[in-house]
Amino acid sequence: MGFKLLSKLLVYLTASIMAIASPLAFSVDSSGEYPTVSEIPVGEVRLYQIADGVWSHIATQSFDGAVYPSNGLIVRDGDELLLIDTAWGAKNTAALLAEIEKQIGLPVTRAVSTHFHDDRVGGVDVLRAAGVATYASPSTRRLAEVEGNEIPTHSLEGLSSSGDAVRFGPVELFYPGAAHSTDNLIVYVPSASVLYGGCAIYELSRTSAGNVADADLAEWPTSIERIQQHYPEAQFVIPGHGLPGGLDLLKHTTNVVKAHTNRSVVE
């Protein structure tokens, strides 16, 4: 069995187990497998329904001669939608809004960016022009300005110390501490036991640490421990890039980060 097929099978099995364990909360999309990078042309966006009122959005972007996937989250909030992270750029984010209108038909009224990198804030200006209120932590807003990236308009308070959590509509926002970046936030959907790890969490097929220019490698494993301790009931975990899975993604990420750190020390 090929690795790609095995990865998709694991996603399907995880979703099936969740649907059985929580039949009222989960209505997993039966329309197909989780979209992969090879299936999404740059400039297009796919939506994948995880649970009743919960979707991931998947886009792709060219970077350094390669094409990478990027995940975000959409959560229903009454007759409105909360968006977590842009679709990595203005063109993708405009396509995301169009796809949401086509498939869901509810307005996106608020959006949260989970850290300051372009795959999370690139497209904020498109959201703002569409009347979406954009939010991020003060740290993310400051770092985005320093980096020359787009800056969300509103500040999220109460997320300055490791372990801080605040309720934001249908989700809980959690600051686990520094990891992929010093400002990275985690998003949890309690009604569906869905954990969105953003770039602080890796997919299972990833074996290298990737972009760690703004990471705190020493603190990252401790931050992941905080996530595990705060959300032990999480059933569906979405990484910032690639295929979702279960809580095993947290341990896998820790292993990859520690291996990278150990290699760096040896070198």
Rank of each mutant, 00 (worst) to 15 (best):
F3D: 05
F3M: 12
K4S: 12
K4Y: 06
K4I: 07
L5H: 13
L5R: 13
K8H: 13
K8C: 08
L10I: 07
T14E: 10
A15N: 13
I20M: 09
P23F: 07
A25S: 08
A25Q: 10
V28K: 09
V28F: 15
D29H: 05
D29F: 08
S31V: 13
E33Q: 08
S38M: 13
S38C: 13
E39F: 10
V45D: 03
R46L: 10
L47G: 02
I50Q: 05
A51S: 13
D52C: 04
G53C: 04
S56D: 08
H57P: 02
I58C: 11
I58V: 09
A59G: 12
T60K: 11
Q61A: 11
S62L: 12
V67K: 13
Y68Q: 13
Y68S: 11
P69N: 15
P69M: 06
R76T: 08
R76W: 09
D79M: 14
L81W: 01
L82V: 13
T86W: 00
A94Y: 09
L96E: 01
L96I: 05
A98D: 06
A98I: 06
E99Q: 06
Q103V: 13
V108S: 02
R110D: 11
V112L: 14
H117R: 01
H117K: 02
D119F: 00
R120V: 03
G122Y: 05
G123C: 03
V124F: 04
D125C: 04
D125M: 11
V126A: 06
L127I: 05
A129M: 15
A129D: 14
T134P: 02
Y135I: 02
Y135C: 03
Y135V: 01
A136M: 04
R142E: 12
L143P: 03
E145C: 12
E145M: 10
P152Y: 01
P152R: 01
L156A: 03
S162Q: 15
D164T: 15
V166A: 07
R167C: 05
F168G: 02
P170V: 08
E172T: 13
F174A: 02
Y175T: 02
G177D: 03
S181C: 01
T182E: 09
T182P: 11
V187F: 00
V187K: 01
Y188S: 04
V189T: 04
S191V: 07
V194L: 08
L195T: 01
G197C: 06
G197Q: 01
G198S: 05
C199T: 02
I201H: 02
I201K: 00
Y202V: 10
E203C: 05
L204T: 12
L204D: 15
R206G: 09
S208T: 13
G210K: 14
N211R: 14
A213P: 12
A215L: 10
W220K: 00
R226F: 11
Q228A: 15
Q228R: 13
Q228F: 05
H230N: 15
H241D: 01
H241E: 00
G246A: 08
G246K: 11
D248F: 06
L250F: 08
K251S: 06
T253D: 01
T253C: 00
T254Q: 08
T254E: 07
V257R: 01
A259N: 05
H260G: 08
R263T: 07
R263H: 05
S264K: 08
V266I: 05
V266L: 06
V266A: 10
